[in-house]
Simulated scan of single mutants.
Amino acid sequence: NVIGDVRGPEIRDRQQCPLVEAFVLETLRYISHTPLALHSTREATSIAGYHVEKNTSVLACFWNMHHGDSEWEDPFLFKPERFLQQDGSLKPASDPVRKSFLLFGTGRRSCPGEVFAKSRLYLFLSTLLQSFNVMEPEDHSLPEFDPREMDSGLIMQPKPFKIRFERRKQRF
């Protein structure tokens, strides 16, 4: 509805497509592709009341951050609307829900590629949805998608599945 079918999606369309943005954020939260991050303290510090010496390895578990009941209602349900306000706009970065999403880290140690990654995901997804209907294959049913069943490792990966793409009529 925002872009139409006379041109492809552009970065400037992003703010007018909050559901696509919410879908991207919920996908990243739900799957937590990189479940762990390893850091080292540069100086002695305190974390949640515990003293931590300089040069101590600290393991951040993004999986638990993104699937904990205390931060996320129904954490194993895929709900892009959790990132939307009542009026359908994207919740601001200062919203507690958005602040609980830490896949790219936070502060000085946050990933420098976050802005680029999210913009590319938006362009990829919006172009895909504009160009194709995405459907269940005619000869298979889609499996239940539960991130707890993914192949774990340094990067979480879904088990193989089939999907059908049907090209939409395009004018551009």
Rank of each mutant, 00 (worst) to 15 (best):
L90E: 11
L38D: 02
C111R: 03
Y50T: 04
L36C: 05
R164K: 08
A93W: 02
K162C: 04
H67S: 07
R171V: 14
M65N: 13
R108V: 11
R42M: 13
M156N: 07
S40T: 15
F161A: 05
E10R: 06
S40N: 10
L36R: 14
T45R: 04
V97C: 05
S89N: 09
H66G: 10
P143I: 04
P35W: 11
L154F: 14
M156Y: 07
L59G: 10
L36D: 07
S57T: 14
G49D: 00
L121W: 03
H66D: 09
G88E: 11
M156G: 01
T41D: 07
S32Y: 00
F78P: 04
P75G: 12
F116E: 05
G153W: 03
A117F: 00
L123F: 04
R42H: 03
F104Q: 03
T56V: 02
S131V: 04
S141N: 14
R171L: 14
L25S: 00
S40E: 15
L77S: 12
D95K: 02
T106F: 14
H51N: 15
D74Q: 13
Y50N: 13
L128H: 01
F62S: 11
F104G: 06
P143N: 06
Q170I: 11
Q15F: 04
S40I: 15
S40Y: 10
I31N: 02
D69T: 13
P143K: 01
R98E: 00
L142Y: 01
T45G: 03
D13S: 01
I31S: 10
F145I: 05
D87F: 07
G68A: 15
P158N: 00
M65C: 12
Q15I: 12
S141C: 13
L129S: 01
Y30H: 02
V97S: 01
N55T: 12
S46F: 08
M156A: 07
Y122E: 06
R164V: 07
R171G: 05
V52G: 12
L59Y: 07
